[in-house]
Design a protein around this nucleic acid. Structure first.
Lengths: 238, 238
DNA sequence: TTTGCTATTTTGTCTATACATTAAAAACGA
DNA sequence: TCGTTTTTAATGTATAGACAAAATAGCAAA
């Protein structure tokens, strides 16, 4: 494959960014440095970096330079919600209660998540509260190999979702959304009646080819609403 | 606002494409013609057209030229589902029963849809069946000014959603997804008990700045599932 | 300390040109 | 007429250079 040079440069950095080798906030070389390194004209480097910028992978600022973009959920079609921040935004007190925390070996993990590779997993289960009232229950698996720092994280207060958003940029996500009635255990956790309507969101996220987390969240009907916007522009008001 | 020239060129054509003035398949002027028209260098024109191409608005072929791309829903993050096609794909018989059909004047329309401009609306209400079993109820408003042909359309059999997908390319959509219990009327239409968990999808779509349709759909829990994929790649299997 | 100016670095835009690549179209030959 | 070859018109890539714009950093004055 003889790719054009600007495309090769683009892919070089895309790979490094998606793999995490270039962490969010890291500065890329200047166009001057790159045109020396690749022995080409500035326009060629510029084309590669501009492409990365329009793809949202990097931010470019005059005089400052080019930086790996922090993962912005707004750039994505549907907000991957940080429940705590949203609750706080409405002036309510947020709390996350961790119920269960378990480390799973690779063999178990393969069963639980149905990934092709066997990976060590962290299993988390807990409930989100707004002003002391439970509004969401979640059950999550995290690929420890992808995020080793998570072993030291403490989720009594901040939710695992918020922690992951902060620490791991994801690049791809799959979501399944259904309605369901609360099971007995879920109903107990959420303080609703068995069979009460709930919004169920199942989501898997990846960074490049590496699976990050799988989560199943149950929201009490009326307490939560997913919104999504598709298309080039920003979200509309009407 | 003094936009850069390549951006102005890009917007010129984006506007014409989204407004429908340049229909899918139409050929754009060659770079030569454009550099004469805008009195600039070829690279400037090229940058504008390349941007439109990466945004998926146009296709470019060497020797042939630049053409307005046909709208591809697959490029969008979440499939706007054609319920009939999905049901048929599973080997079930699909049917749509139109319950109510009403023309609304501008004044009423403003109330019903809460758009800033007063537009003539078509109000539709009906139920989707798979193998004779109702699985979704919908209530829809269509901007007749944007799609005048819809007045002649017949929805006994094919759903309004399918008709719109066929006839009107949308460019932007907003969706709100919640869980809710079925109301008395909805429960009767869907043959479930009052309060049964349902997935509720509210969606507005636009073509450019022009509102096309607003729909509220209720899916019986378990009978339907929304899936969404975010990120550059294609939907994953796992 | 704060404010304001100035220099400098880095990206943003644009030009004019050159050659490569591709695929449609035209010319050609059997 | 059909298939093959050649031409040619269009986009794709790349160069070297110029000036513009913006934001940081440093310095000077209030």
């Amino acid at each position: 494959m003889n790719l054009p040079l600007h495309e090769r440069i683009r892919q070089d950095f895309e790979t490094r960014i998606l793999s995490g080798a270039l962490a969010p906030g890291a500065r890329l070389p200047t166009e001057q440095a790159l045109m020396a390194h690749y022995d080409c004209a500035r326009m060629t480097v510029n084309k590669a970096l501009t492409a990365l910028a329009t793809a949202g992978l990097v931010d470019r600022r005059k005089k400052a330079g080019t930086f790996v973009a922090r993962p912005r959920v707004h750039a994505m079609a549907m907000d991957i919600p940080d429940l705590g921040a949203q609750v706080a935004e409405r002036g309510q007190a947020y709390r996350f209660d961790l119920g269960q925390r378990r480390e799973l070996t690779g063999a178990q993990a393969r069963l639980e998540w149905k990934v092709d590779r066997a990976v060590p997993l962290l299993e988390l289960e807990g409930v989100h509260f707004a002003d002391g009232t439970p509004f969401a229950w979640e059950h999550r698996f995290v690929n420890v190999a992808a995020v080793p720092e998570i072993s030291d994280a403490d989720f009594t207060g901040a939710s695992p979702g918020a922690w992951l958003l902060e620490h791991v940029p994801w690049t791809e996500a799959d979501a399944h959304i259904t309605a369901t009635g609360a099971s007995a255990a879920q109903a107990r956790s959420l303080a609703v009646e068995v069979g009460a309507p709930c919004l169920c969101v199942e989501r898997k996220t990846w960074r490049g080819a590496e699976p990050i987390t799988y989560v199943r969240q149950l929201f009490v009907a009326g307490a939560y609403e997913l919104t999504a916007h598709f298309g080039p522009g920003a979200r509309r008001e009407g």
